[in-house]
Each structure stands twice: as structure tokens, then as C-alpha cells.
């Protein structure tokens, strides 16, 4: 399998990393936004799973990958609404609500998927999102640019604008924000909705642009890795994207090792991203970021008190 002409190994790994990083980045941005507003979304894994299934399924039914992306985002929005209702409006424990969402959604995807998706090799709609169709894009699929653009928007919204300030205020001290006239519940719910939409979109990209097929184990822990990366990056959209890229590189490296047949079992290689995340998370707590203007949202996980 060493027949990649004119492309050395490092470049290939980085290309693969970027391809895998773009769905990761989208979901991670969504998580950053919702955690900045003070709501943990542990349902990420499930939202990505459902996004992946719906994205692929709708594309297969209607023959349009772009429609699939929209459907993925839409179903993510719906799941986000459920999480917002539980975590923001009825003040349920965000950890339990997230775990429930995760189980329900991964279960639903694994249960509906096999009944919906009939396997075909390389359906036509896949090529709509493939890099080779867009010569101007330097070999990356358009979804990568979508992720980057959304990342820039997230950075600019969170750091400068009044909306961003309202979001951070809702996550830092919701009671004070409410007294300043911010409608904290509304802000939090919209952030969770956006987070859910981005997670769904990320799932759709994962199945349509990255894997180009759907499998029942689809996100395979990606959601949880993202949840670990968000605190590691100090809840900053720029840094979280960087970490996503690094983790995606670890993943690409491990896949490459499997392809070229390193003398290690695939299962052991498969552990690499998880072990890397574990080490990074612990190291990140031992040597935390210098405290600056972007500290941990201090009301993270705490509902607004009446």
C-alpha cells in the first residue's frame, strides 16, 4: 500500500489528519460554545452518531450530500433542544442528562442505522463533497473550509461581540448576568442548540466526507475525546481546534501504521488516540494554562438559581 506517488508519508498523514480534524473541530467548537455558556454537553458522542446516520441516510435517499449535511445539522439541533430543555430549563444534572442523551442517541443510531442504510459501493452523491471535485481547494474537501470558517466566526463572536460577552457572562456568573439584563436561559439554550447543530453537522461530515460510508460504530469515542479536549484547551476556540488537529494527527498516524503493517496489532494501535487524550488531559491539569481573561467558566454545570 505504499503507492502514493508524489506525496511523501508526512504529507499524507497531515492530509488525513486535516480531513479527520474538520468534523472534530466543528463538534469541539459547539462544545466550547455551550460550555462557555455554562452547559456541559456530554451527549456529544450520541449527537455525532445520529448526525452521521441521518446525514448519510438522507443523502442516500435524496441523492444529495449537501442535503445530507443540512439534515445532519437539523437533527443535531433537535437533540440539542432536548438537552437544552433538560439541562437549562428543568435544571437537571447536566452529567446525567448528557449520559442519557449519549446512550439514547448512540443506541438510536445503531438501532435505526442497519434498517435504513443499505450498503452500496461509492454512491454518486459522495463525490459532491470529495476534494478532487474542487481543484481550487488545495486537495481538501470543502467541509474543511466550512469548519475553518465557522471556527473563525466562533472566535470573533466569543471574544469581541456583545453576544460573546453575554455567553461568557452566562457561564461565569449566571445570576449576575441575569441581573444585568441578560436572559441567561435563552442564551444558554441557544448555545446548546448551536452546539447540538454543530455536533450533528460534524457527524454528517464524518460519514459523508471523511469515511464516505456509514458504520454502526461511527464516532467511536470521538465525542468523548472532544469533551476531554475542551477543558484541556482552556475553553478557547482557537486552541481547541489546534488540539483537534493534533489528536487527528495521532489518529492518522495510527491508521497509517495499520496500513503499512507495523508489527503491532490493530487493536493496540487503535488505543493510541485514547491514550494520547488521557495523557494530555492529566498533563493539562498538572501544568494548567496561565490564568488569563479566559478562565474556566465558573458556573459550568450549575443551573441558574431562582
Amino acid at each position: 500500500m505504499m503507492d502514493w506517488p508524489a506525496m511523501n508519508m508526512a504529507t499524507a498523514i497531515w492530509m488525513a489528519a486535516v480531513a479527520y480534524a474538520s468534523p472534530m473541530m466543528l463538534a469541539a467548537l459547539g462544545e466550547v460554545i455551550s460550555e462557555r455558556a455554562g452547559v456541559m454537553n456530554l451527549g456529544l458522542e450520541g449527537m455525532i452518531a445520529v448526525g452521521a446516520l441521518v446525514g448519510y441516510g438522507v443523502s442516500a435517499d435524496h441523492g444529495s450530500a449537501w442535503l445530507g449535511l443540512a439534515a445532519g445539522g437539523g437533527v443535531g439541533l433537535l437533540l440539542g433542544a432536548v438537552h437544552a430543555a433538560l439541562a437549562v430549563w428543568i435544571g437537571a444534572d447536566q452529567i446525567v442528562a448528557g449520559l442519557g442523551m449519549s446512550l439514547a442517541a448512540t443506541g438510536a443510531a445503531a438501532f435505526l442505522g442497519p434498517m435504513w442504510i443499505t450498503w452500496r459501493s461509492q454512491p454518486a452523491f459522495i463525490s459532491e463533497l470529495s476534494a478532487s471535485r474542487y481543484k481550487a481547494l488545495l486537495g481538501f474537501p470543502p467541509t474543511t473550509y466550512l469548519a475553518l470558517a465557522l471556527g473563525l466566526i466562533a472566535v470573533s463572536v466569543l471574544s469581541g461581540r456583545r453576544l460573546g460577552i453575554a455567553i461568557r457572562a452566562s457561564g461565569d456568573s449566571p445570576e449576575a448576568a441575569e441581573a444585568l439584563g441578560v436572559r441567561v436561559r435563552a442564551v444558554r439554550s441557544s448555545c446548546v442548540l448551536v452546539g447540538g447543530m454543530l455536533a450533528g453537522l460534524s457527524g454528517a461530515i464524518l460519514s459523508l466526507a471523511y469515511a464516505q460510508t456509514w458504520t454502526s460504530t461511527m464516532p467511536n469515542g470521538m465525542g468523548w475525546i472532544i469533551i476531554a479536549l475542551v477543558p484541556l484547551s482552556g475553553w478557547r476556540p482557537g486552541r481547541v481546534m489546534l488540539f483537534c488537529l493534533l489528536l487527528a494527527a495521532v489518529n492518522a498516524l495510527q491508521i497509517r501504521f495499520q496500513i503499512i503493517g507495523v508489527k503491532l496489532s490493530a487493536s493496540i494501535l487503535d488505543m493510541m488516540p485514547y491514550v494520547a487524550t488521557l495523557i494530555a488531559v492529566i498533563a493539562g491539569r498538572i501544568w494548567p494554562w496561565r490564568k488569563g481573561r479566559w478562565n474556566e467558566p465558573s458556573a459550568l454545570g450549575r443551573p441558574l438559581e431562582q
Binding site: I165, A169, A176, L180, S298
Partner: peptide, 14 residues
């Protein structure tokens, strides 16, 4: 009723 992590101006702006 001020958000501790924001600056004075940001609080007023909010």
C-alpha cells in the same frame, strides 16, 4: 451584580 471575569466596560455594555 457584576460578572467578575469581564471588564467594567463589558459589564456595562452587557
Amino acid at each position: 451584580a457584576l460578572v467578575p471575569s469581564l471588564t467594567g466596560l463589558e459589564n456595562i455594555w452587557l
